[in-house]
């Protein structure tokens, strides 16, 4: 503010704090419970990451466990499954991103071209529905349909004279099942955002393009796509930021001895180490390695977008 304010700021420091408290204390009271929650359930666990550098003992707690430095991080990097875990996680997430990311955009553009409002609405409602189905139910449906003996897929194959295939138990099919069931579940939901962005594009630009002789395809490429590009970029950065954090739940639910070679991901490994074998420190070290990589990925991606002239996330 003004110059003389600065010179007396020391003197005024206390009154200023008091003034803030006097005017805002009721808001702080309302905010206090969420803030306490945030500290206990988000920031204390962040501090708890230090167990990655300790030989953590649950009886002794964080303050009395022995420090071991980078031992567990090194142990993970040198462990025989390090490359396999990283490879499985990355190839699954890159595959999801490459195939799963464009799908909702394609669906949104197709629905946007549909001139029958009732059909558009029905299809939107329908494709949106699987989003409400839980992961457990999704995997259950898959294992019912692809059941080795009774599943409708194999019954159909048998009636056509083909042999039964154990779809769920094949390592080579795990990624396809994972990614395509994800598309099945999320496509309609993610399309909503793009449909919203598409309806915001002014019809005047489109009319001008048609007068200039563009056909509908050219309209889509030159008007619609650039119009939703900012939304696409934001969604892309968010997805890249999630590359390493492939959901634990779905992969864990889909795991069976047959596909473990490809379905063991960093997140499922963390769970097994930490909760099934109670190796808290090692597990946390693996998870720290994972989220650090993730953080770097999202920062890099944001930086690239900003260098290319986009607005980025921040």
């Amino acid at each position: 503010m003004s110059g003389d304010y600065k010179s007396v700021s020391r003197v005024r420091a206390r009154p200023r704090l008091l003034r803030i408290l006097k005017s805002d204390w009721q808001l702080y009271v309302i905010l206090s419970v969420p803030l306490i929650w945030l500290i206990i359930f988000c920031y204390v666990p962040m501090g708890g990451i230090v167990v990655a550098f300790q030989n953590y003992n649950i009886r002794r707690g964080i303050f009395r466990s022995d420090w071991v430095g980078l031992r567990y991080i090194k142990m993970f990097v040198n462990s025989p499954n390090f490359l396999q875990l990283i490879g499985n996680t990355l190839s699954l997430s890159v595959y999801s991103l490459l195939v799963g990311f464009p799908m909702p955009i394609i669906l949104a553009i197709a629905l946007n071209e549909c001139r029958f409002a009732s059909i558009k609405k029905t299809v939107q409602t329908l494709t949106y529905l699987p989003y409400f189905i839980s992961t457990v139910v999704l995997i259950s449906i898959m294992s019912q349909i692809f059941h080795l003996r009774f599943g409708v897929f194999n019954v159909l194959r048998n009636s056509l004279g083909m042999e039964s295939v154990d779809i769920m138990g094949k390592a080579s099919l795990f990624r396809h099942l994972y990614v395509w069931s994800g598309i099945w579940q999320g496509m309609g939901f993610e399309a909503v955002l793009y449909i919203a962005a598409l309806t915001n594009i002014s019809t005047e630009i489109k009319e001008a393009a048609i007068i200039d002789g563009a056909n509908r395809f050219q309209c889509m490429i030159n008007v619609d796509l650039p119009g939703i590009l900012p939304t696409i970029i934001i969604m892309l950065i968010l997805s890249v930021g999630n590359l390493m954090s492939v959901g634990f739940e779905k992969a864990y639910l889909m795991q069976n001895p047959g596909n473990l070679r490809q379905s063991e991901l960093i997140s499922t490994y963390i769970y097994k180490l930490g909760l099934e074998q109670a190796q808290y420190s090692f597990s946390t070290a693996v998870s720290l390695f994972n989220s650090a990589t993730n953080f770097v990925l999202i920062l890099t991606c944001n930086l690239i977008v900003r260098k290319l002239g986009g607005s980025g996330l921040w």
């Binding site: 988000c42 501090g47 708890g48 990451i49 769970y271």
Partner: peptide
């Protein structure tokens, strides 16, 4: 953007 992760949260 960043969280403690599964185990530290479990420990809390």
């Amino acid at each position: 953007l960043f969280s403690g992760g599964m185990i530290p949260t479990y420990l809390v």
